[in-house]
Design a protein around this nucleic acid. Structure first.
Length: 193
DNA sequence: ACTTTGATGGCCT
DNA sequence: GGCCATCAAAGTT
């Protein structure tokens, strides 16, 4: 990937992140599910209304960096999207494991359901708040070329029932038919790439 | 200093 | 499908 990759509009970047390989220190897999969080105008976003706090600060900076937050004792990884100053981010919700599976099994304490959820994949890869702000182009946390994607399914996002109309926004994207998607849902529509 | 709130996961029926 | 453990971050007093 190059710097331009992360300059794409957020929803477009979602499509292009699918199939890419995400790794930390040689452990990781193909990105198979993501969700967009569209900053100030998206009630489900941590940065809704331009809310700028120590937690959300990294989203106000340049795209291509990691935004890692904790919830319910778990960690979740986002790719900060642009344009710079607009606090958009893309939540990585699921991977298809490719590298370091033994390490993932050790960290997860089981040999199934290793990376089919935002908290699970962070545990499997060893991602914590210490990785907040890391650069995907210039750190051990990397996004690189992966596999071509034929069909992307689109649906509403998971776990944001208390956000009014925002819960229905079609901002969830996954590789159609992939076995590692966190919570199978019927697609609102499908996009052929 | 205290209270509320989840972009979850695991286990249950 | 539902319940709830759990804790950092943010909001409130």
């Amino acid at each position: 990937m190059d710097r331009w990759f992360f300059e794409m509009p957020t929803l477009e970047l979602c499509l292009h992140l699918l199939g890419k390989e995400l790794t930390l220190d040689g452990v990781g897999g193909y990105i198979v599910e993501v969700e967009a969080y569209m900053g100030p105008e998206d009630r489900a976003a941590h940065s809704y209304g331009g809310r700028r706090t120590p937690r959300t600060e990294v989203m106000f900076g340049p795209p291509g960096k990691a935004y890692v937050y904790t919830i319910h004792g778990h960690h979740c990884l986002n790719v900060v999207s642009g344009p710079e100053g607009v606090p958009n981010a893309i939540l990585i919700r699921a991977l298809e494991p490719t590298r370091g599976v033994d390490k993932m099994i050790e960290r997860r304490g089981r040999d199934y359901d290793l990376t089919n959820g935002p908290g699970k994949l962070c545990q499997a890869l060893g991602i914590t708040r210490q990785h907040n702000g890391w650069d995907f182009l210039d750190s051990p946390l990397r996004i690189s070329e992966g596999i071509p994607v034929k069909t992307v399914a689109v649906g509403h996002r998971i776990g944001i029932e208390n956000t009014g109309e925002a819960r229905w926004y079609p901002y969830r994207f996954w590789i159609d038919g992939n076995e590692h998607v966190s919570r199978p849902r019927k697609a609102l529509k499908k996009i052929q790439l």
